[in-house]
Amino acid sequence: MAEINIEKKKKSMWPWLILLLVIIALIVWALYEMTNEPDEVEYQEAPATGMVIPADTQLASPTLTQV
């Protein structure tokens, strides 16, 4: 009787490599977010538009009261 050599297929390493790269990317991102100091200033109110109107003239303006 003849012998039949059966070889098992080698599993691909690509899925494991991609998974490892994703995990490393997540770890690097998490470390960056934890160690990054915010340089941005958070505003409590809307920034000024550059237009300055004194409060006294706005209330006493005849055009605003006649509308």
Rank of each mutant, 00 (worst) to 15 (best):
L26N: 04
L17P: 04
M1E: 09
P47R: 07
L21Y: 04
P38N: 15
I4M: 14
K8P: 01
L19F: 09
A55F: 09
E45P: 01
N5W: 13
L31S: 02
P62V: 08
E37G: 02
T35M: 04
L31R: 01
I4K: 15
M13V: 12
P54N: 07
A30C: 05
I18Q: 05
E45D: 07
P62W: 08
K10W: 08
D56C: 01
V67M: 13
E37Q: 09
L21P: 02
T65G: 02
E45N: 05
L31G: 02
Q58G: 00
P15T: 10
I6E: 14
E3V: 13
A25Q: 03
S12E: 12
E33Q: 10
G50H: 05
L64V: 07
A2C: 09
A30D: 00
Y43Q: 08
I24T: 06
W29E: 00
E45K: 09
A55W: 06
E33C: 05
K11E: 13
W14D: 08
L26E: 03
E33S: 09
E40G: 01
L20R: 10
E40S: 06
T65F: 11
I53N: 02
Q66K: 14
D56V: 09
Q44G: 08
E37P: 00
A25I: 08
T57K: 15
A60Y: 08
T65I: 12
V52A: 06
L19K: 05
I24V: 12
E40K: 06
D39R: 07
V41G: 00
A30L: 10
L20M: 15
P47N: 04
E3G: 08
T57L: 13
T49V: 03
E7M: 13
K9L: 15
Y43M: 12
Q44W: 05
P38A: 14
P47V: 11
S61Q: 04
K10N: 06
L20A: 15
E3H: 11
V28Y: 01
L59W: 11
Q58D: 00
G50F: 09
I6H: 12
Y43C: 07
S12V: 11
N5V: 14
Q66H: 10
W16P: 00
G50Y: 05
N5M: 13
K9Y: 14
N36A: 09
A48E: 06
T49F: 07
I23H: 03
L21D: 01
T35R: 02
D39Y: 04
M51D: 00
N36M: 10
M1C: 10
N5G: 06
E3D: 12
V52Q: 05
Q44K: 04
I27S: 03
E37K: 10
E33M: 11
P15V: 14
W29A: 06
I4V: 15
A25M: 04
E33L: 11
E42C: 05
V52G: 00
Q44M: 06
T65L: 12
L26I: 12
L31H: 00
S61Y: 03
A55M: 10
W29L: 09
E37L: 07
